[in-house]
Nucleic acid binder design. Sequence first.
RNA 1: GGAGAGAUGUCCGAGUUGGUUUAAGGAGCACGCCCGGAGAGCGUGUAGGGCUUGAAAACCCUCCUGGGUUCGAAUCCCAGUCUCUCCGCCA
Length: 423
Amino acid sequence: MLDLKFIRENVEKVKEAVKNKNEKTDVELILSLDEKRRSLLSEANELKHQRNVVTEKIAQMKKAKQDAKEEIERMRKVSDQIDSLDKELKEVEEKIASLLLTVPNVPHSSVPIGFDEDLNVVVKTWGEVPKFDFEPRPHWELGQILGILDLPKAAKVTGTGFLVLTGKGAKLQRALINFMLDLHSNKQGYKEILPPFMANRQSMTGTGQLPKLEEDMYLCEKDDLFLIPTAEVPVTNLHRDEVLKAEELPIYYTAYTACFRREAGAYGKDTRGMIRVHQFDKVELVKFVKPETSYEELESLVKDAEEVFQLLKLPYRVRVLCTGDLSFAAAKCYDIEAWAAGVGKYLEVSSCSNFEDFQARRMGIRFRPKEGGKLQYVHTLNGSGVALPRTMIALLENYQTKQGTIIVPEALRTYMGGLEEIK
RNA sequence: GGAGAGAUGUCCGAGUUGGUUUAAGGAGCACGCCCGGAGAGCGUGUAGGGCUUGAAAACCCUCCUGGGUUCGAAUCCCAGUCUCUCCGCCA
Protein backbone atom coordinates (compact mmCIF):
# COMPACT_ATOMS: atom_id res chain seq x y z
CA MET A 1 0.00 0.00 0.00
CA LEU A 2 1.22 3.43 -0.86
CA ASP A 3 1.02 6.36 1.51
CA LEU A 4 -1.97 8.53 0.69
CA LYS A 5 0.22 11.56 1.19
CA PHE A 6 2.74 10.15 -1.26
CA ILE A 7 0.01 9.68 -3.85
CA ARG A 8 -1.19 13.22 -3.29
CA GLU A 9 2.29 14.59 -3.82
CA ASN A 10 3.33 12.28 -6.67
CA VAL A 11 0.21 11.98 -8.75
CA GLU A 12 1.97 11.60 -12.09
CA LYS A 13 4.45 9.07 -10.79
CA VAL A 14 1.64 6.93 -9.39
CA LYS A 15 -0.47 7.16 -12.53
CA GLU A 16 2.53 6.12 -14.58
CA ALA A 17 3.16 3.16 -12.28
CA VAL A 18 -0.45 2.06 -12.67
CA LYS A 19 -0.13 2.27 -16.42
CA ASN A 20 3.28 0.59 -16.67
CA LYS A 21 2.14 -2.26 -14.47
CA ASN A 22 -0.96 -2.75 -16.61
CA GLU A 23 -3.24 -2.02 -13.67
CA LYS A 24 -6.31 0.16 -13.79
CA THR A 25 -6.79 2.01 -10.56
CA ASP A 26 -8.67 5.30 -10.63
CA VAL A 27 -6.13 7.60 -9.01
CA GLU A 28 -8.23 10.70 -9.59
CA LEU A 29 -11.11 9.19 -7.68
CA ILE A 30 -8.86 8.59 -4.72
CA LEU A 31 -7.67 12.17 -4.82
CA SER A 32 -11.16 13.63 -4.93
CA LEU A 33 -12.31 11.41 -2.08
CA ASP A 34 -9.26 12.46 -0.15
CA GLU A 35 -10.21 16.09 -0.61
CA LYS A 36 -13.69 15.42 0.62
CA ARG A 37 -12.28 13.54 3.57
CA ARG A 38 -10.11 16.42 4.60
CA SER A 39 -12.88 18.97 4.50
CA LEU A 40 -15.19 16.74 6.54
CA LEU A 41 -12.35 16.16 8.94
CA SER A 42 -11.70 19.80 9.68
CA GLU A 43 -15.39 20.46 10.12
CA ALA A 44 -15.74 17.63 12.60
CA ASN A 45 -12.54 18.65 14.33
CA GLU A 46 -13.82 22.07 15.09
CA LEU A 47 -17.02 20.73 16.62
CA LYS A 48 -15.14 18.19 18.67
CA HIS A 49 -12.91 20.88 20.01
CA GLN A 50 -15.97 22.87 21.03
CA ARG A 51 -17.42 19.85 22.73
CA ASN A 52 -14.23 19.13 24.62
CA VAL A 53 -14.04 22.65 25.93
CA VAL A 54 -17.66 22.83 27.04
CA THR A 55 -17.57 19.36 28.49
CA GLU A 56 -14.81 20.43 30.80
CA LYS A 57 -16.77 23.52 31.72
CA ILE A 58 -19.73 21.30 32.63
CA ALA A 59 -17.49 19.27 34.89
CA GLN A 60 -16.36 22.44 36.65
CA MET A 61 -19.91 23.68 37.04
CA LYS A 62 -21.08 20.39 38.46
CA LYS A 63 -18.27 20.48 40.95
CA ALA A 64 -19.30 23.98 41.97
CA LYS A 65 -22.87 22.73 42.16
CA GLN A 66 -24.05 25.09 39.47
CA ASP A 67 -26.80 24.34 37.01
CA ALA A 68 -25.35 23.14 33.68
CA LYS A 69 -28.58 22.30 31.98
CA GLU A 70 -28.23 24.85 29.25
CA GLU A 71 -24.72 23.71 28.30
CA ILE A 72 -25.72 20.08 28.31
CA GLU A 73 -28.62 20.81 26.04
CA ARG A 74 -26.35 22.71 23.66
CA MET A 75 -23.80 19.93 23.57
CA ARG A 76 -26.44 17.36 22.86
CA LYS A 77 -27.04 19.09 19.56
CA VAL A 78 -23.35 19.45 18.83
CA SER A 79 -22.84 15.75 19.49
CA ASP A 80 -25.56 14.90 17.01
CA GLN A 81 -23.86 16.99 14.39
CA ILE A 82 -20.55 15.30 15.11
CA ASP A 83 -22.21 11.91 14.79
CA SER A 84 -23.52 12.57 11.34
CA LEU A 85 -20.22 14.08 10.17
CA ASP A 86 -18.33 11.09 11.55
CA LYS A 87 -20.61 8.70 9.76
CA GLU A 88 -20.08 10.45 6.47
CA LEU A 89 -16.36 10.57 7.12
CA LYS A 90 -16.24 6.88 7.85
CA GLU A 91 -17.90 6.03 4.57
CA VAL A 92 -15.43 8.14 2.65
CA GLU A 93 -12.49 6.67 4.52
CA GLU A 94 -13.62 3.13 3.88
CA LYS A 95 -13.88 3.85 0.19
CA ILE A 96 -10.41 5.34 0.18
CA ALA A 97 -8.96 2.43 2.11
CA SER A 98 -10.32 -0.16 -0.28
CA LEU A 99 -9.20 1.85 -3.30
CA LEU A 100 -5.77 2.27 -1.77
CA LEU A 101 -5.39 -1.51 -1.69
CA THR A 102 -5.72 -1.54 -5.46
CA VAL A 103 -2.88 0.90 -6.12
CA PRO A 104 0.25 -1.01 -7.14
CA ASN A 105 3.72 -0.27 -5.86
CA VAL A 106 5.82 2.15 -7.91
CA PRO A 107 8.64 0.41 -9.81
CA HIS A 108 12.21 1.42 -8.96
CA SER A 109 13.84 3.77 -11.46
CA SER A 110 16.24 1.03 -12.58
CA VAL A 111 13.39 -1.21 -13.73
CA PRO A 112 12.99 -1.40 -17.51
CA ILE A 113 9.63 -0.22 -18.79
CA GLY A 114 7.79 -2.83 -20.81
CA PHE A 115 4.41 -4.37 -21.40
CA ASP A 116 5.13 -8.04 -20.74
CA GLU A 117 7.79 -10.64 -20.11
CA ASP A 118 9.30 -10.31 -23.56
CA LEU A 119 10.88 -7.10 -22.35
CA ASN A 120 12.56 -8.61 -19.31
CA VAL A 121 16.30 -8.17 -19.50
CA VAL A 122 18.86 -10.93 -18.97
CA VAL A 123 21.51 -9.55 -16.62
CA LYS A 124 23.55 -12.68 -16.00
CA THR A 125 24.10 -16.21 -17.22
CA TRP A 126 26.02 -18.83 -15.27
CA GLY A 127 27.29 -22.28 -16.13
CA GLU A 128 27.53 -24.26 -19.32
CA VAL A 129 24.40 -25.62 -20.92
CA PRO A 130 25.14 -29.36 -21.07
CA LYS A 131 25.60 -31.06 -24.45
CA PHE A 132 24.46 -34.61 -24.98
CA ASP A 133 25.39 -37.14 -27.65
CA PHE A 134 21.82 -38.41 -27.44
CA GLU A 135 18.38 -36.85 -27.35
CA PRO A 136 17.86 -35.71 -23.71
CA ARG A 137 14.60 -36.92 -22.25
CA PRO A 138 12.04 -34.71 -20.54
CA HIS A 139 11.66 -35.29 -16.79
CA TRP A 140 8.32 -37.08 -17.05
CA GLU A 141 9.93 -39.79 -19.14
CA LEU A 142 12.91 -40.05 -16.81
CA GLY A 143 10.58 -40.11 -13.83
CA GLN A 144 8.61 -42.94 -15.29
CA ILE A 145 11.65 -44.98 -16.39
CA LEU A 146 13.22 -44.71 -12.97
CA GLY A 147 9.95 -45.13 -11.07
CA ILE A 148 10.42 -41.97 -9.03
CA LEU A 149 7.58 -39.83 -10.37
CA ASP A 150 4.04 -41.15 -10.71
CA LEU A 151 1.69 -38.70 -12.37
CA PRO A 152 -1.19 -41.14 -13.03
CA LYS A 153 -1.39 -41.97 -9.34
CA ALA A 154 -1.42 -38.27 -8.47
CA ALA A 155 -4.31 -37.77 -10.88
CA LYS A 156 -6.15 -40.60 -9.16
CA VAL A 157 -5.68 -39.19 -5.69
CA THR A 158 -6.33 -35.54 -6.42
CA GLY A 159 -6.75 -34.76 -10.08
CA THR A 160 -4.69 -33.09 -12.69
CA GLY A 161 -1.92 -30.76 -11.61
CA PHE A 162 -0.56 -32.77 -8.73
CA LEU A 163 2.39 -35.08 -8.43
CA VAL A 164 3.50 -38.09 -6.47
CA LEU A 165 7.18 -38.70 -5.88
CA THR A 166 8.16 -42.18 -4.88
CA GLY A 167 11.27 -43.92 -3.58
CA LYS A 168 14.47 -42.21 -4.66
CA GLY A 169 12.43 -39.38 -6.13
CA ALA A 170 10.87 -38.53 -2.79
CA LYS A 171 14.26 -38.89 -1.17
CA LEU A 172 15.89 -36.63 -3.73
CA GLN A 173 13.38 -33.90 -3.07
CA ARG A 174 13.85 -34.19 0.68
CA ALA A 175 17.61 -34.04 0.14
CA LEU A 176 17.22 -30.85 -1.86
CA ILE A 177 15.10 -29.26 0.83
CA ASN A 178 17.58 -30.11 3.54
CA PHE A 179 20.49 -29.01 1.39
CA MET A 180 18.90 -25.63 0.74
CA LEU A 181 17.83 -25.02 4.33
CA ASP A 182 21.29 -25.91 5.57
CA LEU A 183 22.92 -23.62 3.03
CA HIS A 184 20.73 -20.68 3.95
CA SER A 185 20.69 -21.17 7.69
CA ASN A 186 24.24 -22.39 8.33
CA LYS A 187 26.26 -20.56 5.74
CA GLN A 188 24.23 -17.52 4.77
CA GLY A 189 22.87 -16.51 8.16
CA TYR A 190 19.13 -16.94 7.75
CA LYS A 191 17.09 -18.08 10.73
CA GLU A 192 15.09 -21.17 9.97
CA ILE A 193 11.31 -20.92 10.39
CA LEU A 194 8.65 -23.59 10.08
CA PRO A 195 5.42 -21.60 9.75
CA PRO A 196 1.76 -22.59 9.29
CA PHE A 197 0.75 -23.56 5.77
CA MET A 198 -2.47 -21.61 6.15
CA ALA A 199 -3.08 -17.94 6.74
CA ASN A 200 -6.00 -15.67 7.51
CA ARG A 201 -7.35 -12.78 5.46
CA GLN A 202 -5.41 -10.15 7.30
CA SER A 203 -2.12 -11.87 6.60
CA MET A 204 -3.01 -12.31 2.94
CA THR A 205 -3.86 -8.64 2.71
CA GLY A 206 -0.64 -7.72 4.46
CA THR A 207 1.61 -9.26 1.86
CA GLY A 208 -0.64 -8.16 -1.00
CA GLN A 209 -2.25 -11.42 -2.20
CA LEU A 210 -5.60 -9.96 -1.26
CA PRO A 211 -7.70 -8.40 -2.55
CA LYS A 212 -6.36 -9.00 -6.05
CA LEU A 213 -5.51 -12.69 -6.12
CA GLU A 214 -8.32 -14.31 -4.11
CA GLU A 215 -9.29 -16.45 -7.09
CA ASP A 216 -5.78 -17.88 -7.37
CA MET A 217 -5.81 -19.30 -3.87
CA TYR A 218 -7.42 -22.22 -2.09
CA LEU A 219 -9.85 -21.08 0.57
CA CYS A 220 -11.18 -23.18 3.43
CA GLU A 221 -14.49 -21.42 3.73
CA LYS A 222 -15.59 -22.82 7.05
CA ASP A 223 -12.71 -21.16 8.82
CA ASP A 224 -12.02 -18.42 6.29
CA LEU A 225 -8.42 -19.58 6.00
CA PHE A 226 -6.33 -19.71 2.85
CA LEU A 227 -3.73 -22.29 1.95
CA ILE A 228 -0.57 -20.30 1.46
CA PRO A 229 0.62 -19.74 -2.12
CA THR A 230 4.11 -19.03 -0.77
CA ALA A 231 5.91 -18.98 2.57
CA GLU A 232 6.30 -15.26 2.06
CA VAL A 233 2.83 -14.87 3.56
CA PRO A 234 3.24 -16.49 6.97
CA VAL A 235 6.89 -15.54 7.36
CA THR A 236 6.54 -11.86 6.49
CA ASN A 237 3.44 -11.61 8.68
CA LEU A 238 5.44 -12.89 11.63
CA HIS A 239 6.21 -9.28 12.47
CA ARG A 240 2.89 -7.71 11.57
CA ASP A 241 2.00 -4.73 13.79
CA GLU A 242 5.38 -4.67 15.46
CA VAL A 243 7.97 -2.03 16.13
CA LEU A 244 11.38 -3.58 15.63
CA LYS A 245 14.55 -2.34 17.26
CA ALA A 246 17.03 -0.77 14.86
CA GLU A 247 19.77 -3.11 16.05
CA GLU A 248 17.63 -6.15 15.25
CA LEU A 249 17.80 -5.28 11.57
CA PRO A 250 18.43 -6.78 9.17
CA ILE A 251 16.38 -9.89 9.95
CA TYR A 252 16.86 -12.89 7.65
CA TYR A 253 14.47 -15.83 7.64
CA THR A 254 14.38 -19.00 5.62
CA ALA A 255 11.44 -21.38 5.58
CA TYR A 256 10.39 -24.58 3.91
CA THR A 257 6.70 -24.88 3.12
CA ALA A 258 4.38 -26.48 0.69
CA CYS A 259 2.73 -23.91 -1.59
CA PHE A 260 -0.77 -24.09 -3.02
CA ARG A 261 -1.93 -22.34 -6.16
CA ARG A 262 -5.12 -22.81 -8.11
CA GLU A 263 -3.45 -21.51 -11.25
CA ALA A 264 -6.82 -20.31 -12.43
CA GLY A 265 -6.50 -18.96 -15.91
CA ALA A 266 -3.30 -20.85 -16.60
CA TYR A 267 -4.99 -23.83 -18.17
CA GLY A 268 -3.21 -25.30 -21.12
CA LYS A 269 0.10 -23.77 -20.09
CA ASP A 270 2.92 -26.12 -19.08
CA THR A 271 0.45 -28.89 -18.35
CA ARG A 272 2.92 -31.68 -18.96
CA GLY A 273 4.99 -33.11 -16.14
CA MET A 274 5.67 -31.04 -13.08
CA ILE A 275 6.41 -27.60 -14.46
CA ARG A 276 3.16 -26.10 -13.21
CA VAL A 277 1.32 -27.83 -10.39
CA HIS A 278 -1.22 -26.90 -7.74
CA GLN A 279 0.91 -27.99 -4.82
CA PHE A 280 4.65 -27.72 -4.65
CA ASP A 281 7.42 -27.42 -2.12
CA LYS A 282 9.56 -24.36 -1.81
CA VAL A 283 12.29 -22.98 0.39
CA GLU A 284 11.81 -19.26 0.84
CA LEU A 285 14.04 -16.39 1.90
CA VAL A 286 12.58 -13.33 3.63
CA LYS A 287 14.35 -10.17 4.77
CA PHE A 288 13.36 -7.19 6.92
CA VAL A 289 15.84 -4.40 6.41
CA LYS A 290 16.45 -0.68 6.82
CA PRO A 291 15.26 1.37 3.84
CA GLU A 292 18.69 2.69 2.90
CA THR A 293 20.08 -0.83 2.44
CA SER A 294 17.23 -2.56 0.68
CA TYR A 295 18.70 -2.50 -2.82
CA GLU A 296 22.02 -3.94 -1.66
CA GLU A 297 20.00 -6.51 0.22
CA LEU A 298 18.15 -7.39 -2.96
CA GLU A 299 21.42 -8.06 -4.76
CA SER A 300 22.69 -10.28 -1.94
CA LEU A 301 19.34 -12.06 -1.77
CA VAL A 302 19.68 -13.01 -5.41
CA LYS A 303 23.23 -14.20 -4.81
CA ASP A 304 22.08 -16.38 -1.93
CA ALA A 305 19.46 -18.00 -4.15
CA GLU A 306 21.94 -18.36 -7.02
CA GLU A 307 24.34 -20.24 -4.79
CA VAL A 308 21.89 -23.12 -4.70
CA PHE A 309 22.40 -23.65 -8.42
CA GLN A 310 26.10 -22.97 -8.34
CA LEU A 311 26.61 -25.67 -5.72
CA LEU A 312 24.39 -28.04 -7.66
CA LYS A 313 26.26 -27.07 -10.82
CA LEU A 314 23.06 -26.28 -12.69
CA PRO A 315 23.26 -23.59 -15.40
CA TYR A 316 20.93 -20.64 -14.99
CA ARG A 317 20.31 -17.06 -15.99
CA VAL A 318 19.03 -14.05 -14.11
CA ARG A 319 16.51 -11.64 -15.57
CA VAL A 320 15.35 -8.31 -14.24
CA LEU A 321 11.60 -8.02 -14.74
CA CYS A 322 10.18 -5.13 -16.70
CA THR A 323 7.34 -3.03 -15.28
CA GLY A 324 4.60 -5.00 -17.01
CA ASP A 325 5.80 -8.32 -15.59
CA LEU A 326 6.47 -6.98 -12.12
CA SER A 327 4.06 -8.14 -9.44
CA PHE A 328 1.59 -5.78 -7.83
CA ALA A 329 3.52 -5.23 -4.61
CA ALA A 330 7.10 -5.31 -5.93
CA ALA A 331 9.31 -2.34 -6.74
CA LYS A 332 11.98 -4.45 -8.37
CA CYS A 333 12.32 -8.14 -9.06
CA TYR A 334 14.89 -10.57 -10.43
CA ASP A 335 13.91 -13.97 -11.73
CA ILE A 336 16.34 -16.82 -11.66
CA GLU A 337 15.73 -19.35 -14.42
CA ALA A 338 17.35 -22.73 -14.50
CA TRP A 339 18.11 -24.48 -17.75
CA ALA A 340 16.19 -27.70 -18.27
CA ALA A 341 17.82 -29.80 -20.99
CA GLY A 342 14.91 -32.17 -21.58
CA VAL A 343 12.19 -29.62 -22.21
CA GLY A 344 14.83 -27.39 -23.75
CA LYS A 345 14.07 -24.13 -21.99
CA TYR A 346 14.77 -21.97 -19.01
CA LEU A 347 12.34 -22.43 -16.12
CA GLU A 348 11.62 -19.82 -13.49
CA VAL A 349 12.82 -21.23 -10.19
CA SER A 350 13.11 -18.13 -8.09
CA SER A 351 11.69 -14.66 -7.93
CA CYS A 352 13.55 -12.19 -5.73
CA SER A 353 11.74 -8.97 -4.97
CA ASN A 354 12.18 -5.76 -3.07
CA PHE A 355 8.83 -4.45 -1.87
CA GLU A 356 10.35 -1.41 -0.21
CA ASP A 357 7.82 -0.23 2.40
CA PHE A 358 4.76 -1.35 0.43
CA GLN A 359 4.09 -4.50 2.45
CA ALA A 360 5.42 -3.00 5.67
CA ARG A 361 2.86 -0.20 5.48
CA ARG A 362 0.04 -2.65 5.01
CA MET A 363 1.33 -4.75 7.85
CA GLY A 364 2.46 -2.03 10.20
CA ILE A 365 6.05 -3.20 10.52
CA ARG A 366 8.21 -0.32 11.69
CA PHE A 367 11.46 0.32 13.48
CA ARG A 368 12.88 3.10 15.59
CA PRO A 369 15.98 4.56 13.95
CA LYS A 370 19.03 4.51 16.19
CA GLU A 371 19.64 8.20 15.54
CA GLY A 372 16.25 8.91 17.08
CA GLY A 373 13.39 10.51 15.25
CA LYS A 374 10.16 9.10 13.94
CA LEU A 375 9.27 5.49 13.50
CA GLN A 376 9.93 4.29 9.98
CA TYR A 377 8.57 1.45 7.96
CA VAL A 378 11.07 -1.33 7.29
CA HIS A 379 11.65 -2.59 3.79
CA THR A 380 10.71 -6.18 3.11
CA LEU A 381 12.21 -8.51 0.53
CA ASN A 382 11.74 -12.08 -0.37
CA GLY A 383 12.85 -14.64 -2.84
CA SER A 384 12.59 -18.32 -3.43
CA GLY A 385 15.66 -20.20 -2.37
CA VAL A 386 14.32 -22.13 -4.31
CA ALA A 387 11.20 -23.77 -5.79
CA LEU A 388 11.50 -27.54 -5.73
CA PRO A 389 9.69 -29.09 -8.70
CA ARG A 390 11.43 -27.04 -11.34
CA THR A 391 14.77 -27.50 -9.65
CA MET A 392 14.07 -31.22 -9.71
CA ILE A 393 13.27 -30.93 -13.40
CA ALA A 394 16.52 -29.13 -14.12
CA LEU A 395 18.45 -31.62 -12.05
CA LEU A 396 16.90 -34.70 -13.61
CA GLU A 397 17.13 -33.42 -17.15
CA ASN A 398 20.65 -31.99 -16.92
CA TYR A 399 22.17 -34.88 -14.98
CA GLN A 400 20.62 -37.64 -17.09
CA THR A 401 22.69 -40.26 -18.85
CA LYS A 402 22.13 -42.10 -22.09
CA GLN A 403 20.82 -45.08 -20.12
CA GLY A 404 18.18 -42.90 -18.49
CA THR A 405 19.83 -42.83 -15.09
CA ILE A 406 20.57 -39.71 -13.05
CA ILE A 407 23.96 -38.75 -11.66
CA VAL A 408 23.46 -37.29 -8.17
CA PRO A 409 25.23 -33.90 -7.88
CA GLU A 410 28.12 -34.07 -5.45
CA ALA A 411 26.64 -31.44 -3.16
CA LEU A 412 23.63 -33.70 -2.55
CA ARG A 413 25.31 -37.02 -1.98
CA THR A 414 25.72 -36.67 1.77
CA TYR A 415 21.99 -35.98 1.88
CA MET A 416 21.30 -39.15 -0.16
CA GLY A 417 23.25 -41.53 2.03
CA GLY A 418 26.21 -41.37 -0.35
CA LEU A 419 24.18 -42.38 -3.39
CA GLU A 420 25.95 -41.40 -6.62
CA GLU A 421 23.46 -42.45 -9.22
CA ILE A 422 19.73 -43.01 -9.41
CA LYS A 423 19.01 -45.98 -11.62
C1' G B 1 -16.77 -27.74 23.07
C1' G B 2 -17.64 -25.97 28.73
C1' A B 3 -15.91 -22.57 32.99
C1' G B 4 -12.92 -18.55 34.48
C1' A B 5 -9.08 -14.53 33.94
C1' G B 6 -7.04 -10.99 30.88
C1' A B 7 -5.79 -7.44 26.45
C1' U B 8 -3.14 -0.10 28.36
C1' G B 9 2.69 3.51 25.25
C1' U B 10 9.16 0.41 22.41
C1' C B 11 8.65 -3.19 26.65
C1' C B 12 6.88 -4.18 31.77
C1' G B 13 3.09 -2.21 34.58
C1' A B 14 -0.74 1.31 37.57
C1' G B 15 -5.41 3.20 36.78
C1' U B 16 -12.60 0.44 36.31
C1' U B 17 -17.66 4.70 42.67
C1' G B 18 -17.52 7.94 34.34
C1' G B 19 -15.28 14.53 34.32
C1' U B 20 -7.23 18.62 33.90
C1' U B 21 -5.15 10.54 33.19
C1' U B 22 -2.60 10.24 26.57
C1' A B 23 -2.41 7.89 30.82
C1' A B 24 1.43 7.19 37.38
C1' G B 25 5.79 4.13 38.20
C1' G B 26 9.77 1.18 36.17
C1' A B 27 12.83 -0.62 32.09
C1' G B 28 14.81 0.70 27.47
C1' C B 29 16.57 4.54 24.32
C1' A B 30 18.73 9.70 23.45
C1' C B 31 21.42 13.84 25.39
C1' G B 32 24.26 15.99 29.42
C1' C B 33 27.06 15.62 34.13
C1' C B 34 30.27 12.59 37.03
C1' C B 35 34.54 9.13 36.12
C1' G B 36 42.00 7.50 34.93
C1' G B 37 39.08 3.50 31.88
C1' A B 38 34.84 0.26 32.17
C1' G B 39 30.71 -0.10 35.19
C1' A B 40 27.62 2.15 38.53
C1' G B 41 25.46 6.91 39.83
C1' C B 42 22.95 11.76 38.90
C1' G B 43 19.98 15.10 35.73
C1' U B 44 16.92 16.07 31.41
C1' G B 45 14.05 14.29 27.45
C1' U B 46 11.15 10.33 25.12
C1' A B 47 3.72 7.39 22.46
C1' G B 48 1.57 6.85 17.62
C1' G B 49 -1.41 8.83 13.82
C1' G B 50 -4.27 12.78 11.41
C1' C B 51 -4.78 17.80 10.00
C1' U B 52 -2.17 22.22 9.23
C1' U B 53 2.63 24.29 8.05
C1' G B 54 8.45 26.56 5.21
C1' A B 55 8.94 24.17 9.89
C1' A B 56 6.21 24.23 14.16
C1' A B 57 2.47 25.45 17.69
C1' A B 58 -2.63 24.92 18.22
C1' C B 59 -6.43 21.37 17.21
C1' C B 60 -8.53 16.24 16.51
C1' C B 61 -8.17 10.87 17.10
C1' U B 62 -6.16 6.47 19.47
C1' C B 63 -5.93 2.59 26.36
C1' C B 64 -7.59 -5.24 21.53
C1' U B 65 -11.65 -4.51 17.37
C1' G B 66 -16.68 -2.93 16.25
C1' G B 67 -21.26 -1.05 18.06
C1' G B 68 -24.17 1.35 22.20
C1' U B 69 -25.40 4.53 26.75
C1' U B 70 -23.88 9.77 28.11
C1' C B 71 -23.13 16.73 27.67
C1' G B 72 -18.61 13.66 28.60
C1' A B 73 -15.99 6.64 28.50
C1' A B 74 -9.41 3.42 29.39
C1' U B 75 -13.39 3.33 33.07
C1' C B 76 -20.60 1.38 32.14
C1' C B 77 -23.49 -2.09 28.41
C1' C B 78 -23.55 -5.51 23.92
C1' A B 79 -21.00 -8.34 20.04
C1' G B 80 -16.42 -10.16 18.16
C1' U B 81 -10.97 -11.39 18.02
C1' C B 82 -6.78 -13.03 20.52
C1' U B 83 -3.94 -14.77 24.97
C1' C B 84 -3.62 -17.49 29.63
C1' U B 85 -5.63 -21.20 33.39
C1' C B 86 -8.89 -25.40 34.43
C1' C B 87 -12.19 -29.36 32.39
C1' G B 88 -13.72 -32.32 28.17
C1' C B 89 -12.34 -34.29 23.31
C1' C B 90 -8.38 -35.68 20.06
C1' A B 91 -3.37 -36.58 16.55
